[in-house]
Design a protein around this nucleic acid. Sequence first.
DNA 1: GTTTCATTTTTGTACCTACAACTATTACAT
DNA 2: ATGTAATAGTTGTAGGTACAAAAATGAAAC
Lengths: 149, 149
Amino acid sequence: MRLEEEIKQSKFESEQQKAVLNIMVTSNWITSNQTKLLKKFDLSPPQYNVLRILRGAKDKPVMLADISSRMLDKMSNATRLVEKLKQKGLVNREQCEVNRRQVDISITEQGLQLLLLIDAPMKDMTALLSHISTKEAQVLNEILDKWRK
Amino acid sequence: MRLEEEIKQSKFESEQQKAVLNIMVTSNWITSNQTKLLKKFDLSPPQYNVLRILRGAKDKPVMLADISSRMLDKMSNATRLVEKLKQKGLVNREQCEVNRRQVDISITEQGLQLLLLIDAPMKDMTALLSHISTKEAQVLNEILDKWRK
DNA sequence: GTTTCATTTTTGTACCTACAACTATTACAT
DNA sequence: ATGTAATAGTTGTAGGTACAAAAATGAAAC
């Protein structure tokens, strides 16, 4: 849907200002689709994000600060997110013995199994959402990287 | 910053998948900058959004459902947002006499004054954030509109 | 060894969001 | 006029987010 219809605003001060709104509308749109899919597995998008980070670490335990820094939303509260995941049996958390300030998090077998279930539908959805060509996606990525300086 | 550094992930399955993440990271980045600016005026981004919608309506009172449909995030809870703004004296709300199901919202003089204070710094920030040319912004907008089909 | 500072995590508060259930009002069919 | 459906808004619950203050631990200086 065109941006003008989406937020019922007909004129913008500049193409740049319009692009700012367009980015935010598109991001919300992607998130809401992902949220719907993940809800079937009783996960929120940040919870799913944490699980994927842990899977990516391949057995190496990861401390909370690392999780935060890899998340899309840097400022989110890793402590409470991980607590939710632990209650579902999807992650382990234990104090690091060499540095007892750290808390080491790792994904459980059950967590890995859940991710496996989600992989295919999530891939399908991303493909479905990306009605743009590889070339267009490249252009988009270049402009966005430049944008954030 | 390049996306790879931003979320410390080195490879992506496709340019499209990378674009999905890029959109979300860029959106979070814009929002966090706006949040910082608005905080000086004791407003949250959705609250600011509501005030601008009301100013755009030019005296015509707006019902809650209209506010929701014009917001970036459609599903947000207009009732409670408007309540916060009312407590600050920035909006009026009264039951519509012809259709008592409706609640008509309008911006107060105090609300208009506050928006005037914010206009200049917000415009400056948007300009500062948009390190991209008008042409690039146009390309971005075209791809994003196409993306959301 | 004690003080001081930095690191890592936890906790409290206030706000926002999604969704579903609920109330009140209006419109419509008969 | 009555029952039914549609519209508009409110409220409860469970999650997420931002920020600041605090606690625990470790490192460094002296």
